[in-house]
């Protein structure tokens, strides 16, 4: 078990180095001189050259990479072109909001996706199964922005049940429990929109795992022992089918972060995705790269966690 975890940790070292290199390359490929914004006619070419030198822009690429990495591990992602804000500051401001949204969607995906998949599998080839399977396919197939717009249209604009965007009602100035309730009220629609695709994939995955497991010899053994259907399905089949589901804990993280870009922009949710969209519009490459690097690292950690979880739930790896 410890050996397995150590191996996984070791394997992720080259991956994390690769992530930083790829981020660095993309950043270097971005068009425009980082100093272009500061250029004003009164600065002479000599002065510009001096500041380039000072910023290390004339160093060989690998030296630049190590300097950049040195800053990054200290949490310094540089400053925005416009306004000279600290990028880390901007991100830190929004990170919690994105985490609230993605974490809710994450929980929703599994809390709803797993039971839907199990029910569909147990009721295989019945109307319930067909209905749930169809729902899951629609969930995978619907463009998330379209679903988001539909949800806002019906639940916010037509029915007026939920706010159409934002995270808090600024004018109300809530505090304490009222504030929490207000955030929750704003959270429900974007969390549903963000999780829909994931609910659908989790339930499809659970269903097919469950069907595979139900064909296993040990299920036949359990039946031969005269156990009740409930014990056969939940004790013998479900627990085995759940093991591979753990692997998509990790896989769903990049999916949710991608989705957050769109969901946050539709719902005006003040998170990293919305920051990213603004950054795209303003060509703030520094922000985009920082977001890339941070999410890639989070995804890597997520994968690592799900691999370790896998080892914990599967006794064959545990030993």
């Amino acid at each position: 078990m410890l050996k397995y975890i150590a191996r996984r940790l070791l394997l992720s070292i080259p991956v994390i180095i690769g992530i930083t290199i790829l981020s660095f390359i993309i950043m270097k490929l971005s068009p425009g001189d980082p100093l272009a914004n500061f250029i004003n006619p009164s600065i002479s070419m000599e002065d510009l050259e001096i500041s380039r030198q000072a910023l290390g822009l004339n160093d060989p690429l690998f030296v630049q990479y190590f300097k950049w990495i040195g800053q990054v591990v200290r949490g310094n992602f540089g400053y925005t072109y416009s306004g000279n804000h600290s990028i880390s500051g901007l991100i830190l401001e929004r990170l919690p909001n994105t985490i609230i949204l993605t974490l809710s969607a994450f929980v929703l995906s599994f809390v709803l996706g797993i039971p839907i998949g199990v029910i569909a599998a147990v009721r295989k080839n019945t109307r319930v199964d067909y209905g749930l399977t169809f729902f899951s396919l629609v969930g995978v197939a619907i463009p998330s922005f379209f679903f988001g717009l539909l949800v806002i249209y019906f639940f916010a604009l037509v029915l007026g049940l939920f706010p159409s965007g934002g995270m808090i009602n600024i004018r109300a100035g809530y505090t304490g429990y009222a504030y929490f309730k207000d955030v929750l009220h704003h959270l429900i629609l974007p969390a549903i929109v963000l999780s829909l695709g994931n609910i659908a994939s989790v339930s499809r995955f659970t269903r097919s795992n469950m069907l595979d497991v139900l064909k296993e010899d040990y299920i036949r053994t359990a039946k031969a022992k005269g156990l009740r259907n409930k014990a056969i399905v939940y004790k013998h089949a479900f627990r085995n089918a759940l093991i591979p589901v753990v692997t998509i804990f990790g896989l769903s993280i990049p999916f949710l972060f991608s989705g957050a870009y769109i969901t946050e922009s539709i719902f005006n949710w003040p998170g990293m995705g919305q920051l990213g969209i603004t950054a795209i519009q303003n060509r703030e490459y520094g922000i985009i790269m920082a977001l890339n690097l941070i999410t890639a690292t989070l995804v890597l950690l997520g994968n690592l966690t799900s691999d370790i979880l896998y080892a914990i739930v599967d006794p064959r790896i545990r030993h």
Binding site: E216, R220, A222, N240
Partner: peptide
């Protein structure tokens, strides 16, 4: 091997 439940 396959007739016994691997996780119990």
């Amino acid at each position: 091997m396959t007739a016994l439940n691997p996780i119990l």
